[in-house]
């Protein structure tokens, strides 16, 4: 029924206006520095020069990448055993539900809860007090920021790895045992390589929000803890410098693309046949 094709056009028009044009605006503003009303476009790399010649911004950039990598690593290290244990459990479906429910609750709300718990007079320090441990300063540290990010993003990692473990053909494990592999060998040579695609898609779901997050560092890291997302927020909502803000978000996008490229090439190394989906 060819006439149904017409049903696409209204959305196509909408998507060009609401999705493509705003993206193009970022591109245009990043390469000019003539103020916020670009009447006649003048190409300039000024914003990029400003970013890369200022050590303050470079420190922020390095810190953002460091935090995002740290978050991703912890999500894999904690998420993998969790997904593995879930796949072996009798209560799989319930556990999947229990891991999913928190993601349906507002991230701001869950992050704010950690503020109360990590405070000097908070629940955790109170608990540590029972063991005679003096109040530790958690808030406004890298620990708090990474904890907040791991807390918010780890369900995505767990669910991705769990899905790939679930899909795993059990007869392969039997074959490995028949051929004389012990438990560890079986895990390292069969289970782990076959779950790499799950880890990779988990990484894409964790690294990207981690590197661009701005409310987690603000809530748990305090006003001094600036990541690249906070710089972008400031440029648009406080400083009102669209060109510089657009340039920074473009730099961030490039970092994300590079990191995705690196993770994908890791996938190809472990699964040369390219069995990812």
């Amino acid at each position: 029924m060819k006439s149904f094709r017409k049903l696409v056009y209204p959305y196509l028009l909408w998507a060009i206006i609401m999705i493509v044009i705003p993206m193009l605006m970022i591109l245009v503003y990043a390469f000019t520095d003539e103020g916020n009303s670009v009447r006649n476009f003048v190409f300039s790399l000024g914003s990029f020069r400003r970013f890369f010649s200022d050590t303050v911004f470079l420190v922020v950039l390095r810190r953002s990448i460091y935090i995002a990598v740290l978050t991703t690593v912890f999500c894999v290290l904690l998420g993998y055993p969790m997904a593995y244990a879930m796949a072996k459990s009798r209560f799989k479906i319930h556990l999947v539900l229990l891991v999913t429910i928190p993601t349906w609750i507002n991230m701001l709300v869950r992050t704010y809860a950690w503020r109360g718990m990590l405070d000097n007079n908070g629940l955790i320090n109170n608990f540590l007090g029972f063991f005679g441990i003096a109040p530790l300063k958690f808030l406004e540290t890298t620990f708090a920021v990474v904890l907040g990010m791991v807390y918010n993003f780890i369900p995505f990692m767990i669910l991705q790895i769990y899905t790939s473990l679930e899909k795993l053909d059990k007869s392969l494990l039997e074959a490995a045992s028949d051929l004389g592999a012990n438990r560890l060998q079986r895990f390292l040579k069969v289970t782990l390589p076959l779950s790499v695609p799950g880890i990779i898609s988990g990484i894409t779901l964790v690294f990207l929000p981690a590197v661009s997050s701005f409310f987690i560092p603000k809530l748990l890291g305090g006003g001094q803890y600036v990541l690249i997302g906070n710089v972008i927020e400031n440029q648009f909502l406080t400083a009102g410098d669209w060109s510089f803000g657009s340039a920074i978000s473009l730099i961030m996008a490039v970092i994300i693309i590079i990191s995705m490229y690196i993770t994908r090439s890791l996938d190809k190394k472990t699964n040369p046949e390219g069995g990812d989906d």
């Binding site: 609401m18 044009i21 705003p22 993206m23 605006m25 970022i26 503003y29 990207l208 929000p209 590197v211 661009s212 701005f214 997302g229 972008i232 927020e233 648009f236 669209w242 803000g245 657009s246 978000s249 961030m252 996008a253 994300i256």
Partner: peptide
């Protein structure tokens, strides 16, 4: 695919 903040600033400028 885009980080939320990128979508957000695009719409803000728009």
């Amino acid at each position: 695919m885009n980080p939320d903040i990128v979508t957000a600033i695009g719409l803000l400028m728009f």
